[in-house]
Every structure is written in structure tokens, then in C-alpha cells.
Design a protein around this nucleic acid. Structure first.
Lengths: 362, 362
DNA sequence: TTCGTTTATGATAACGTTATCATAGCAGCA
DNA sequence: TGCTGCTATGATAACGTTATCATAAACGAA
């Protein structure tokens, strides 16, 4: 039989020495937040605060009878641990911060989905913010999120701003960048080379005999990288220049794809292929071709990037570059989890590579 | 000139009485988390902790010179306030918890987007979780989120489980349910009647002279409500029954829309209209009709629900029910903000109503 | 001059939890 | 018998911040 001593459940409140001694500082007030605390549970279970804490976190360290009384009290009071207090003292917040350029782009959301699945599997929670593609907003957002002392940080995209990179390194928590590739990640990178993706698809189109290939992209880093790959592939093939059409603004839309395709169709000479930087734009392109009576791929080949579900359904089905959006999120979450369990991962760079999905449109 | 006294910046650590007195409890260790605290800033600025705290939160309460020294120290040290400590003592977490059925559905994500914009405008942060359409997961998720003591909670959908409803009420924070309508919200509801939406679109199709209308939906509460509206409109028109095709599982996909449309096209007699529960399914339906050479809307009218962007771009453009996804999120955030500023809103129910967008497909 | 008010700053306690050490009782063992 | 180790429990301090009250100096009004 182990020690069983009379206990008290922290009598910080309501001590009778109060009022005798002249007191300063915050007075004892009735708790405005009426959520039960460990103290309430302990009182009801007739045990000490610390034993309740243990019963909840390491049940096998507590005698079954004690545990039963505690469980009863927890249920009866509807006790929910205050994770702010827990974070403060344990220095583990159980929060993974996620930074997305925009919540208006469904492929980024797939990554968020993968992160959510991976993160909640380890009992942690997702704190999400979007930057609207602004570097200034990104820095501010990350600063704000850092105040929550997240256990890890996942970012869609590479962080370009040196100040922000320094900030992230200095936080002392694992960081995963995604959706792009670099030799020099802040900590980890799980992604693919957008440049390589642009190059691979352009090569594919060249291999199919296309020569007048137009690129459609946005003023946004990942699109720029794809464009660079496109131009390099043209150059390798001994073709000059290359022509880019730009969307008004990210994120891209089907309608924007249609509008740009409309303009492109009027070019003279007409191109024989259009490589859209995203599937959304490409589907818009296909729809516009259909509308204009342009036969795809006979007259114009159309390619996208992203492997969105609609690309498999539209007629003609869309030739595209596979981007494992969900998987990148999932993998990022796993890397963070492993790091948080103390693993020192040697592989800092996970390159999913690029994979052309050849379908009917090109 | 105000008081200027010698100060000390909380000498809790490193006191020299340590070691003389026999100590129990946690020993003083070097901070493993090397993030600077208010204490570090105060030391560098030559002032007290509390003055630093004030300088950051109520700058006008601190003399400009003092403030300048503090600002310098904050910059130099890269101080970022620990929000867990702040939450604990101030009982304001600055967190809005968001519960979504799935992150795999882009229309829910638009609501998340609206929430994000509205919430970050007030300097708060978004803690996100998805339930995978499971009531059990929903309860567990909300319990977990509640541990973070959020200042407010936004939920996509109505909470059906009575235990979960009780839990949410007991938290004592504002709650907004969205994406549906009820007379009896837990606290607030910002949405529209899915039943009314189903009824309105069905009436529209009936008005267009359609008589053999099929409904395509999912085994999921909002879809069920739309189906109920569909059936009630048929009944009002003196038509019997109604026929529903179900998707395998939510969330819906373009491919699933095509598959179901394929089956529906083979029915004998063939229907003259198909009302899809979501735009994604409906677009799949249009694509399949195109593929089968079925003329839309002459042979079969097709209608959707959600007013996704692609519906405006596809040919024929999609007749649908407008759902202000982004706006619902935005409005939900505003309601939460107002409540948190102390407003007692009399209007607990915000009904965006339903709005048929008549386009070419029906 | 006196006294109340304002301004700027500080001291202290408290928020609710966990890390660490302490200890009573018991079992096992030589 | 005495020692060691184990089990179950507890006491205390600490995490980093904010709420509250206190106070010195300056200011203003009577």
C-alpha cells in the first residue's frame, strides 16, 4: 500500500491569512471564466491537483481506484484541460502553424488537408493563416503565429525574405517549406521543382512535335519558376524566346483561362500549344477552345499543371503535371512529428519529382 | 516629471538566497526555450516588466523616451510576446476555432477564407479542424479545440448532436453556425435554408416546364435538406415521389457527377432535368452530357447548387443556386468580433436567402 | 500654502498547468 | 533485521504574462 496522506488542493485561494496581512497586487476575485480547473476536479475526487494531472496524462501511474474517482469527477464537471497553461509550463504548445499564400486556391487547400490529417493524428492542432501572396503580410503573419510558440511550422512555398528566414530559424522549431524545391531550405523542404516541372512539360510538348508553344502564368514565384523551365527547354531545343501571357492576379480562375485563351487564339501565327501554369487556367482554355470550335489537341495542344480532379473528367481529358498536394501536406506533417519525437532527420530535402500525366489534350 | 524609481526586473531567477534555504520543487534551470521574455526586454531597456508590457499594449501610457528604449530592446532581442501566458492571465486567447466537415471541399474553404479575412482583421488567429463528416469526430474535435479556450467558435453546418450542443453552450463563448438555417441555433446562425434552396430550384425547373426531374445528392445533412425541398416542391406541383441518386461518399467530385449522369441518361423514360446537389456534380453532369451527345438544356436541363466559379465558365453556363460561401464566413467573423467587443446582438439569425442564378443549362 | 488630481512607473499576485523532488508504505532480498 | 528499490501520492516552484493596487513626482485649483 502506497502513501496515503491528507492532501490539500492548493489553497492559494481563500487562505485565512488574507486580510490579516496587508496585501498588494491582484485581489482574489471569483473566477469569471467558470470552466472547472484541475483544482475543482481534485477537490471532487478527494485527491491532489498533481494526481489528477497524472491520471489524465499517464493513467498507469495512478491506482485504478483513484483513477476511477478522477474520471468520475472529470465527467461530472465537464473538465477540459486548459492548454494555454499546459503550453506555458511544458513548453510544448501542441500547435502546428501553417502559412498559405491564399485560401482561395483549392490545391493549396489539399496540402492543408494533408497537414490536417497528419497533424491531428498526433493530437496536435492547426493554426492557419494566409498571406495573400504578400511578403510583408507573410512576415507579420509568421511573427503573430510565433507568439503562440508552435511546435512546428509548415509553409506553402519557399520563404524568400531573408528577415523572415532568419526569424524562422531563430524560433528553434522544425520548419517545413513545401510546394517548391531548393538546395537551401530553412530547415526541411518537401516539394518538387517548379522549374523542372515547367521544363518537363515543355519538353513533352516539343516531343509531340509542337513548336509554337505559349506559356500562361502569373506574377507569382512558383509560376515564375515554371516559366523559367519552359524557357530553358525551348532554348535547349534551339527555339528562341518563348512567349508568356500573364493573368491579372493570382489565384487563377477558369474565367481567366478562357479570356487568355481567347486572346491567344487570335494570334497570328496561331500557336500550336498552350502550356498553362495551373490546371484551373488550362480547363478554362479547353472550354474556350471548345467554344471557339478549335479542336484540341489537333489544332492546339493544351497542357496544365496540378492534376486537379476536373482534369480527369473534362473532355478532352487534360494532360498535366502531377502535383501531390495532399501528399506534400501529409509528408510535411510526418516530418514535423518525427522531429518532435526527437528524431534528427538526415534527409532535409524531399523531392517528389515531376510526373507528366499524358492524357488527351496534348 | 513622474516617478522614477530604481527598479528591478523580477529577480525570481538567480536569487542568492537559493542554496542557503533548502529548496523543494522545480529547480531553476537555464531556459531551454531561449526566446526572450518581457524580463529580458525590461533588463535591456532599464525598466520594469510591467512597463514593457504596457508599452506594447498601451503605448500612450508610457513616456516617449521610455517607449523608445523599450522599442529598441524589443527589436534588438527579437522579442515576441508569449501568447500562452497572455491567454492564461487575461482570459482572452485571441483564437477563433473553426470546425469544417472537410477541407476537401472548396466551397467550405471559401467560408474559411472569409473567416480568415474577418478574423485576422481583428488581430485574432484561426484554429482549424475538420471532422470528416463524423459526429463523433466533431465532438472530439470541439472538445480538443475548447482546451485552447477560444474567444469564439465558428462551425460549418449545424451541430446536431445534443451533447455537442450542450458542450458548446457551456463554454460561454459566442458560437456561429453557418451553411444552414434553423430556428434554434446554439447561439448564432449565418446561413441559408438548404431545404428552401432545394425547393426553389425545383420550382424553377418546374416553371421551365420540366416534369421528370431527378435529384442527385449525398448521404450528408445539407444534401438531405435540399432533397427534402426538392420533394416538397414536387408534391406541391402534384407530382408524385421524386427520384434520388446518391453519390458514394461526400465530398463530391466531377467524376462522380459524370458517372451518375451516365446512369441517369440510360433511364427509361429519360428524365428531362437533373438537379445536382452541388455544382461540382452538376459540372460533371454537363461534361457527361456533352460526351454522350445529349443537348443541354434542350434534351435534359441541368442545375447545380453553390455558384462555383467554373459554373460561369463552362459551356453551357450552369444554372445554379447562389451560396455566398465567402460572405457567410466573413459575416460569421464579424458577428464574433462584435460579440467580443461586448455587443449583445439581438439578431441571432442571419438568413442570406436563396437566389437562383438562371444561366444556360436550365 | 494645502490638498486633490494626474502622470508615469512599479510591486505583487494570480492565471492553470507541469517538472522536479520528496516521502510514506510496502515488497524483495541478503 | 536492515537495506534497497518500487509504487503511489504529494508539495512546491515555475512558466511569462496581465490585473490590480500603490506611489512618487508634477500639476493645478482653492
Amino acid at each position: 500500500m502506497p502513501a496515503k496522506r491528507p492532501n490539500r488542493y492548493s489553497e492559494r485561494r481563500g487562505n485565512d491569512w488574507m486580510g490579516k496581512v496587508k496585501r498588494r497586487g491582484r485581489p482574489i476575485r471569483p473566477r469569471p471564466d467558470n470552466a472547472p480547473s484541475l483544482e475543482d476536479v481534485a477537490r471532487r475526487a478527494g485527491t491532489s491537483i498533481i494526481t489528477v494531472s497524472r491520471a489524465l496524462r499517464q493513467p498507469d501511474k495512478v491506482r485504478p481506484e483513484t483513477r476511477a474517482r478522477i474520471t468520475e469527477a472529470v465527467e461530472a464537471l465537464g473538465y477540459i484541460p486548459n492548454l494555454a497553461a499546459s503550453s506555458l509550463v511544458s513548453r510544448r504548445s501542441g500547435i502546428i502553424a501553417v502559412v498559405v499564400p491564399t485560401l482561395g486556391n483549392s490545391t493549396f487547400v489539399d496540402t492543408l488537408h494533408g497537414l490536417s490529417d497528419g497533424v491531428t493524428a498526433t493530437g496536435r492542432q492547426l493554426l492557419v493563416g494566409d498571406t495573400g501572396y504578400s511578403e510583408t503580410a507573410e512576415h507579420a503573419l509568421i511573427t503573430a503565429l510565433a507568439g503562440r510558440r508552435p511546435d512546428g511550422i509548415a509553409i506553402v512555398g519557399l520563404v524568400r525574405n531573408p528577415r523572415t528566414r532568419t526569424l524562422l530559424s531563430s524560433l528553434g522549431v522544425p520548419v517545413v517549406e513545401t510546394w517548391d524545391m531548393t538546395d537551401d531550405p530553412i530547415d526541411h523542404v518537401v516539394g518538387f521543382s517548379n522549374t523542372e516541372a515547367g521544363r518537363a512539360m515543355t519538353r513533352y510538348l516539343l516531343d509531340k512535335g509542337r513548336r509554337r508553344i505559349i506559356f500562361v502564368g502569373a506574377h507569382e514565384p512558383r509560376s515564375r519558376a515554371r516559366e523559367a523551365g519552359y524557357r530553358s527547354a525551348l532554348q535547349d531545343a534551339g527555339l528562341s524566346g518563348g512567349t508568356t501571357f500573364f493573368t491579372e492576379e493570382p489565384p487563377s480562375s477558369f474565367g481567366e483561362g478562357r479570356r487568355l485563351m481567347h486572346r491567344i487564339a487570335n494570334l497570328d501565327p496561331r500557336p500550336d500549344a498552350v502550356f498553362f501554369s495551373t490546371d484551373v487556367l488550362a480547363v478554362g482554355g479547353i472550354i474556350e477552345c471548345q467554344h471557339l470550335g478549335i479542336e484540341v489537341p489537333r489544332e492546339i495542344a493544351i497542357a496544365g499543371l496540378g492534376d486537379l480532379e476536373i482534369g480527369r473528367s473534362i473532355v478532352p481529358t487534360l494532360t498535366t503535371v502531377q502535383i501531390p498536394s495532399y501528399q506534400m501536406g501529409r509528408r510535411a506533417a510526418e516530418i514535423l512529428s518525427q522531429r518532435l519525437e526527437g528524431a534528427e532527420l538526415t534527409q532535409k530535402i524531399v523531392d517528389f519529382g515531376v510526373n507528366i500525366i499524358a492524357r488527351d489534350s496534348a
